[in-house]
């Protein structure tokens, strides 16, 4: 039972991390139907920014809480700026072009950012300070769940609630939903579509950066390649849940997290990814639009 609980929690944590990245994929996809391959890179840049800021501040002898807060804030701001710029350079000129062209552009961007960080920061794995403090009150539960893990869960939940609120109730959210449904129509009723798309990229990048900071401090090391792998996984999660759907991204991520965790725990760790992908194929065969995705009926 204890083992089961352990796997359950580790799956939950994995899932919530995937979710932070998957949200960006899904939001961007929902609005411009583009698989943003560079999204994983944004997450990686978020982690790097946090690392740099944290290192500097540690040298200056700040206290831990201040460091983690400041590092996260800076990472979020930077990643958002990157997300915004990437969209402006690589995607906006391609609106209306064939979708595959935009995809290739995204791939090019991903390669560019990866190598840019590689050149600037070398290819070595860099130790990432564990920024999240150990809470006193957690000590008695330490064998089941650690403080950083609690922080990850809490952050993810908060971000999710915030996003749900943003999309459901704000003007911006309404405009986003309108744009996602019918871009031209939204434009006609006076929505500034370009601004909405930029905004989506910014929000998506910000959540990804948050994910980057949390994971990096959880795992303890980063390099330039982490974005790509995490990106693929998160993308799988987003599709699993039904791409374009925000609750879908969360559900998909959790399901993927648990699947991986239980499979590794009970069967074998060699074939963990094989199983994750097989699971995806299996789900999609029976639910072609993902778990939460609406079955699209094309108007004839």
């Amino acid at each position: 039972m204890e083992y089961f609980l352990e796997l359950f929690l580790s799956g939950l944590i994995r899932g919530s991390i995937y979710a932070l990245i998957a949200l960006g994929y899904t939001m961007v996809y929902g609005i411009i139907e583009l698989i943003n391959f560079a999204h994983g890179e944004i997450y990686m840049i978020g982690a790097f920014t946090a690392l740099i800021v944290a290192s500097v501040l540690t040298m200056l002898g700040w206290n831990q809480i201040a460091i983690i807060l400041l590092a996260s804030v800076v990472a979020v701001i930077y990643s958002s700026a990157y997300g915004y710029t990437v969209e402006k350079i690589a995607y906006q000129p391609l609106r209306g072009a064939p979708r595959l062209s935009a995809l290739i552009s995204a791939i090019g961007m991903s390669l560019f950012l990866q190598n840019y960080v590689l050149l600037a920061q070398t290819s070595d794995f860099m130790p990432f300070p564990s920024l999240i403090p150990e809470f006193k009150f957690m000590e008695s539960y330490e064998h089941i769940i650690s403080s950083p893990e609690i922080v990850i869960l809490a952050t993810t939940t908060l971000v999710m609630i915030f996003l749900a609120f943003l999309i459901k109730f704000t003007r911006m959210g309404k405009a986003m939903r309108a744009t996602a449904q019918d871009r031209e129509m939204a434009m006609l009723v006076g929505v500034d579509v370009d601004r909405i798309i930029s905004f989506t990229f910014i929000i998506g990048s910000a959540t990804a950066a948050l994910g980057g900071v949390l994971i990096a401090s959880h795992i303890g090391q980063i390099n330039f390649y982490i974005g790509f792998l995490a990106g693929i996984k998160a993308f799988v999660a987003a599709v699993l849940g039904g791409i374009g759907s925000i609750p879908g991204a969360v559900v998909g991520s959790l399901v993927l997290g648990w699947t991986e965790s239980f499979f590794t725990g009970y069967v074998s760790s060699d074939y963990e990814d094989v199983f994750a992908f097989l699971f995806l194929v299996f789900i999609l065969i029976f639910r072609p639009s993902g778990i939460m995705g609406r079955a699209e009926t094309e108007k004839v």
Partner: peptide, 11 residues
């Protein structure tokens, strides 16, 4: 790096 940039510019 250049390769990635070329892809973007091309597209």
């Amino acid at each position: 790096l250049i390769f990635g940039a070329v892809l973007v510019v091309m597209m």
